[in-house]
Computed example of a mutant assay.
Amino acid sequence: MPVSLPMVARMFMLLLLTLAPAAGVASPPPQPYAVALRPCPVLNTADFAGVFGCRDGKTLRTDPQGQLRALEFIALPGTVFILREMRRDGAATIYRVTTDAYPYPSTTGYFIDSRFVRLAASPPPARQARLPAAAEIIGRLLAAQGSRYVWGGNVRLGVPELLEYYPPDVPLSADATRRWILQGVDCSGLLYEATDGFTPRNTSALLAYGQGVPAAGLTAAQLRQRLQPLDLLVWKGHVIIVLDRDRAIESRLDYGPGVAQHDGVLVRPLAEVLAEIMRGRVPADRYEDRPGGKTFVVRRWYQ
């Protein structure tokens, strides 16, 4: 029986749809929800293999400062994702997702590797972040001392599964292994891990988190007397956490000259930290990027 042209066209389209996932073309996910089984890296690109190995099997896709800017954050176990689309990349299945745990706008979208999650057909219960007691939070912060700085990092021990899912083709040094598995934290990630994901993940949200402590016009000595444990000294792009009236803790990419530790989590005298900040910024009651002057605010969130 002769085959009609419309029938050939339909068969061709069916073949394309069948091959699309294997070719990396986005398609609908099999189920609309997923739950993180373990710490789950969330990237701003679907090209996981290009980030972890740069497809030559041995190179991480880093910026000139050695940071993986593709990493947005690491979702904690129990985090719920809504799946938007699915694509294949070799042995990996990559999902484009959204999640209430990271409600920030994106021009590229957010992506996860399916091996870190389980799928669900109906909405799973939201992850319940339990706010630890203040003493426990401070203990967790202090336990992170010496951890290296990782852009987007909020699990100081990292994600060892990345070595299994994206194995390097060459032996890695200890430092390269640490970078490969995202071992370390950034400034807001330090707080996020210590609070079990209770606090916002980005400094843009921390700027208005909790209640403001009146700080405008105060000297460093006056401001120090107003601070309480777990108060935040924050501006767009960085946050420092007060431990007590003598100490503060932060994670920074570069501490500059005069500090023995180059990067990562460090405890320093609060008076020294305030003096350093106020050489370039002034305390304000409300944060703003104002011409001719940089500000910072104090947020009190733990009551």
Score class of each variant (00 low, 15 high):
Arg252Thr: 15
Gln228Gly: 01
Pro21Arg: 02
Asp186Glu: 06
Gly217Val: 03
Ala26Gly: 10
Tyr165Pro: 10
Asp100Pro: 06
Leu162Tyr: 06
Leu266Asp: 09
Arg38Ile: 13
His238Asp: 08
Arg69Tyr: 08
Gly158Lys: 01
Val259Glu: 13
Leu163Pro: 08
Asp285Gln: 00
Glu164Ile: 15
Phe198Leu: 12
Arg130Ala: 15
Arg118Glu: 13
His238Pro: 08
Gly90Asp: 05
Gly57Tyr: 05
His262Trp: 14
Gln67Gly: 05
Ala9Lys: 14
Val265Ile: 07
Val117Ser: 09
Pro160Cys: 09
Leu60Asn: 01
Ala34Phe: 08
Arg148Asp: 15
Ala271Gln: 10
Glu250Val: 09
Arg148Glu: 14
Glu276Ile: 09
Asp89Glu: 14
Asp196Lys: 04
Pro167Met: 09
Leu266Thr: 08
Leu60Ile: 10
Pro160His: 05
Ala70Pro: 02
Ser188Pro: 07
Pro30Ala: 14
Arg252Gly: 11
Gly197Asn: 00
Thr59Asp: 09
Gly210Gln: 03
Leu68Asn: 05
Pro132Cys: 02
Asp56Gly: 10
Ala248Pro: 06
Gly237Trp: 00
Lys58Ser: 15
Leu14Pro: 11
Ala20Gln: 04
Ser114Asn: 12
Gly293Thr: 15
Arg224Trp: 01
Leu270Ile: 05
Pro123His: 09
Leu19Thr: 03
Ser114Met: 12
Tyr33Phe: 14
Val239Ser: 04
Ala26Leu: 03
Pro64Met: 04
Cys187Gly: 06
Pro167His: 06
Ile138Glu: 11
Ala70His: 10
Thr59Asn: 10
Val185Asp: 09
Asp89His: 04
Leu207Ser: 08
Val25Asn: 00
Pro123Cys: 04
Gly258Tyr: 01
Val25Lys: 02
Gln65Phe: 15
Leu71His: 03
Leu266Ala: 07
Gly109Tyr: 00
Ser114Gly: 12
Gly210Asp: 04
Ala134Val: 13
Lys236Ala: 15
Gly258Asp: 07
Phe52Thr: 03
Pro2Trp: 12
Met13Val: 15
Ser114Leu: 13
Arg300Thr: 08
Ala23Asn: 10
Tyr95Ser: 01
Arg88Leu: 11
Asn202Arg: 07
Arg87Leu: 12
Val259Phe: 07
Met7Asp: 11
Ala22His: 14
Ala216Ser: 13
Asp231Lys: 00
Pro28Arg: 10
Val159Gln: 07
His262Leu: 14
Gln31Cys: 10
Ala22Cys: 15
Thr99Asn: 02
Val273Gly: 05
Ala34Ile: 05
Pro257Thr: 08
Thr199Val: 11
Val267Leu: 06
Ala220Gln: 12
Asp246Gly: 14
Thr45Tyr: 00
Arg127Asp: 01
Ile74Val: 12
Val298His: 04
Pro29Glu: 07
Ala194Tyr: 00
Leu230Gln: 05
Leu14Asn: 15
